[in-house]
């Protein structure tokens, strides 16, 4: 991974020196194991701040919304797809961006590592496909492929779909991934069982909105949960309001979600809200053959009407 970092710094320095961008948005080393902090670099001499490793799971498209500068942005496969969506939705202009593509082998699931250890994790490092996890009294090694974030394990677009520079050679895409096994199980449940599943799924939610705010799609100036005239959703921790928030948010992302996993990664209480977003992703794929953010030339399916749109639900 250190060669990724070197290359990113080299490209960023060049872009800043040549004045092609006003700032580069990337990651800097975090203060906690498995955490990096999104940051900007405006001066060529500061590019040494930038790092790249398996803990860059936050979606940087989130930091582009409505910005006016010329920006160099570091983009994994999912980030690049959200950048495409941002461009289509007029949240940033293609001309403003120099996209530094990072072919990605998946991010590491910090929750999974934390849950495997009773003791506090003090550091996590990588060596030849192995992840070395250190606690106060022990050091354990794991296969990197066993520790991927759930969305990364299912990812079929690891390479950036749009880029101006590349920080490494393209990687091989994962083949024969069954993205929706768990969704099919839920689809098969009777209504009551589904309802109980969602009750349980969202019971820990504290309505902090980290999922919404980490999501590059959630840029509405006033979110529906904040509307007061009329008020759509109650503000309390009532489970109905909580579920309404999650369901509606998922619907707002239908046909736009790239399954970047930022929502789940950001959640302080570990809610698997991707169960909702992936169901809609699956529907969009099955009904319209659509995957979000692959091309600048196509409008998202819920944005267009076609005579062959499926309508078997209409009686």
């Amino acid at each position: 991974m250190s060669n990724y970092t070197d290359k990113i710094r080299e490209i960023s320095e060049r872009l800043l020196k040549e004045g092609r961008v006003d700032m580069v948005i990337g990651f800097k080393q975090g203060t906690m194991p498995m955490m990096n902090e999104p940051c900007f670099v405006k001066k060529p001499e500061d590019v040494s701040k930038l790092v790249w490793d398996s803990h860059c799971g936050i979606n940087l498209a989130n930091y582009l919304t409505d910005r006016k500068e010329k920006i160099g942005v570091i983009a994994k496969g999912c980030d690049s797809r959200n950048i495409v969506t941002h461009i289509i939705e007029n949240k940033i202009k293609r001309e403003q961006l120099v996209i530094i593509g990072v072919p990605c082998k998946g991010m590491i699931d910090r929750r999974k590592i934390a849950s495997m250890s009773d003791a506090e994790i003090l550091s996590v490092a990588e060596q030849n496909g192995k992840v070395i996890v250190k606690t106060k009294d022990a050091e354990k090694r794991y296969e990197r492929t066993d520790l991927l974030q759930k969305n990364c394990a299912l990812c079929v677009h690891r390479n950036p779909v749009i880029y101006d520079e590349l920080a490494a050679d393209l990687v091989e895409e994962q083949k024969n991934v069954d993205r929706y096994a768990d969704i099919r199980e839920i689809e098969a449940m009777p209504p009551d069982e589904k309802w109980h599943l969602f009750d349980d799924l969202f019971s820990a939610c504290i309505r902090c909105y980290a999922c919404r705010n980490a999501c590059p799609l959630c840029y509405c100036p006033t979110c529906f949960v904040d509307e007061s005239r009329p008020q759509w959703v109650g503000k309390s921790t009532d489970p109905i309001d909580t579920k309404t928030f999650h369901f509606l948010r998922a619907y707002h992302c239908a046909g736009r979600c790239t399954d970047c996993g930022a929502c789940e990664r950001a959640c302080p209480v570990g809610i698997n809200m991707r169960l909702l977003t992936r169901k809609l992703e699956k529907d969009c794929f099955e009904s319209f053959g659509w995957e979000a953010g692959l091309s600048l030339d196509q409008r998202p399916p819920l944005d267009v009407y076609k005579t062959n749109d499926p309508e078997d639900f209409i009686k």
Partner: peptide, 16 residues
Amino acid sequence: EEAAFACLNCGTCTYS
């Protein structure tokens, strides 16, 4: 400006 850049403005810090 630098300190606030990464912030998502979620309420996690305040609620916890």
